[in-house]
Write a protein that binds this DNA or RNA. Structure first.
Lengths: 197, 197
DNA sequence: GTCTATAATTCGATAGAC
DNA sequence: GTCTATCGAATTATAGAC
């Protein structure tokens, strides 16, 4: 499917990815992409079948990357706290490696058309279920406090969702080690050090 | 500007807001809006000047709501922890009151055109600065741990950003009191109860 | 792999009658 | 405030020459 990339095709895919992230999928036209590449619109179809196929390709690839990562964590046998740390680490690793793909994953998935949209949402729900598994294990073991599962799962997911910002829109340099350390500290212990209420 | 709403105009604005949230701004056409209202496209322009103006109106209104809220918190004289609790509370209150507007604020702001786009981003940066103020005060007083300001600010903002999901796409009922309690607990203390490294 | 040319559709918006 | 009719521009995509 995605093999046999000529250098020119790879360049097109890279530029397209960046531009779709910057302007949004709907706002990025084939003319925009062609103009950035310095050729005519029709040449795009030497590389891809359709605009829709381009989005699908990126979204499902990065989606599977996250699944591979979290599957590995679930099979690790680590205690829940270590699994959660590994989850933060996974997010930072994938985001630093493929920042624009992660950006698409956050912002552009809803531009998929049926039946791919349903397929994507199902797969995303499966991922969220895996995150729930880690958290519920931690609550049962007493390592985590007894949160509402829906709320805490979305809070944790949301806490790592914005990382792509650091590697795309952010101008300053990023220290991945420090980012992971700080974000882990926040997810595990919040802004304050102890209990409240 | 937004006064003298006839019931029909108010209904149009409500339906538009909901539809733009569901389909996305770019994907929602004037024909879509007219169809939902049961009249022809041209009638839309009895209520609004342009599609762009519709988006602007909603975004800047809800943006100012957040500013009003956080300004009130900053003037409160509360200690940092209480200010942070109030910030969570503000997010839940505004989101439960105007869930679709908050959804637009998160997802559709970048569809603004210049010069409104720059104006919006400037205003958003001002809001983020106010959040930073609360957090830095907490770190200096020792109530919060010594995080990197950029990282922790975005982490906190991200932790409350997904709340709109509960009031728009979420099917189950929401208990605002419980949501606030749990989310506050997470932001202040994380998933675990104590410190780590 | 690049071009010209164009098809076929959809878009936001306007004019003007009632 | 609702309609019909339409404009002009922009959209994705294709055909076919070089």
């Amino acid at each position: 499917m995605t093999k046999n990339h000529s250098p020119r095709k790879k360049q097109f895919l890279d530029e397209s990815l960046k531009m779709i992230h910057e302007k949004g999928y709907k706002a990025t036209t084939m003319r925009d992409l062609a103009e950035r590449m310095g050729f005519e619109v029709s040449n795009i179809y030497n590389f891809i079948d359709s605009k829709e196929a381009l989005l699908e390709s990126y979204l499902f690839m990065i989606s599977e990357d996250f699944h591979d990562g979290i599957d590995h964590i679930l099979e690790s046998g680590y205690p829940p706290t270590e699994k959660l740390k590994a989850l933060v680490s996974l997010n930072i690793r994938l985001t630093s490696t493929k920042p624009y793909q992660v950006g698409l994953l956050v912002n552009e998935w809803r531009n998929l058309k049926e039946p791919k949209l349903t397929k994507f949402i199902d797969r995303r729900n499966e991922y969220e279920e895996k995150v729930r598994l880690i958290i519920s294990e931690g609550i049962e073991s007493g390592e985590f406090r007894p949160f509402d599962m829906d709320i805490i799962t979305h809070a944790v997911l949301s806490s790592v969702k914005w990382i792509y910002y650091w590697y795309t829109d952010h101008s300053e340099e990023v220290n991945p080690v420090e980012l992971e350390r700080q974000l882990t500290e926040f997810v595990l212990g919040g802004v304050g050090g102890g209990a409240q209420s």
